Amino acid sequence: MTFTTRLLARLCFWTRVDAPERLDKSIEIEALVRAHGDWLALLATILEREHVIGGEELARGLREFATHTAADRPAEGRILSFWAAYLQDTSVTLRDLPSLH
């Protein structure tokens, strides 16, 4: 089971919805989590392009923030950790692509 699948399963459990509704909820939550990850990756790309902060550095900072957040709010910490990993993956992928400008 992937991290994303486990995260979505936990989010569905926390919503305490019935089984038929749970599937609809999990699809909505998955779309929400992915959409936030996508816009965060886009923002990180722009910040790196403008030489404000590198993507890997931003991912490290978010991972640290996730660790501190998880101490008081575990669910939020897991989501932030997911996004930090997503940013790290995006940063590595973009680093290996040739620049277009």
Score class of each variant (00 low, 15 high):
A71I: 10
Y86R: 11
T67H: 14
V52H: 06
I46A: 05
G77S: 02
A66W: 03
E48F: 09
W83C: 09
E64C: 11
G61I: 01
G61F: 01
G61V: 00
L87N: 15
L58M: 11
F82V: 03
R78S: 07
G77F: 01
E57L: 08
E48P: 09
E48Y: 07
E56H: 02
L47F: 03
L80G: 01
A66T: 04
R73G: 10
E50P: 02
L58V: 13
L62S: 05
W83T: 01
R60F: 15
A66Y: 11
A71T: 11
Y86F: 07
E64H: 03
A85N: 04
T69V: 09
R78E: 14
D72H: 09
G55A: 12
T69Y: 02
I46L: 05
T67N: 10
A84W: 00
A75V: 01
A66G: 10
E76H: 01
I79S: 01
E48D: 12
S81K: 02
W83Q: 04
I79R: 00
F82K: 00
R63Q: 06
G55S: 04
A75H: 02
G55E: 10
P74S: 11
F65V: 14
L87H: 06
L47G: 03
G77M: 01
R49Q: 11
R49P: 09
L47I: 00
R63T: 09
L58R: 08
A70M: 01
F82C: 10
H51A: 12
E64L: 11
H68P: 05
V52Q: 12
L47N: 08
R78Y: 11
A85F: 04
G54F: 01
F65I: 15
V52M: 10
A70F: 05
A75S: 15
E48H: 05
L47M: 09
S81I: 08
Y86D: 15
D72T: 12
L80T: 02
A59K: 00
A71R: 07
R49K: 14
R49T: 13
I53F: 09
I79A: 05
Y86H: 15
A84T: 00
R78M: 10
D72N: 12
R63W: 08
G54N: 02
H51G: 09
A59V: 03
E57D: 12
W83N: 07
L80D: 02
L87K: 14
E64D: 14
E64N: 15
E56P: 06
I46C: 04
W83F: 06
R49Y: 13
L87D: 12
L80R: 00
G54C: 11
G77N: 02
R63D: 11
I79L: 03
E57C: 07
S81T: 09
D72A: 05
E56T: 12
L47E: 10
A85D: 05
I79F: 04
F82W: 01
Y86E: 07
E56G: 14
R49H: 12
E50C: 13
A75D: 11
A59H: 06
R73V: 15
G54Q: 06
I79T: 03
R60D: 13
A75N: 08
F65L: 13
T69K: 00
L87T: 15
A85P: 00
E76M: 14
A66C: 07
L62M: 06
G77Y: 07
D72C: 14
R78K: 06
V52S: 04
G55I: 00
P74K: 08
I79Y: 05
E50K: 02
G55K: 01
E48G: 12
T69G: 00
A85H: 03
T67V: 07
H51K: 06
T69C: 13
E48L: 04
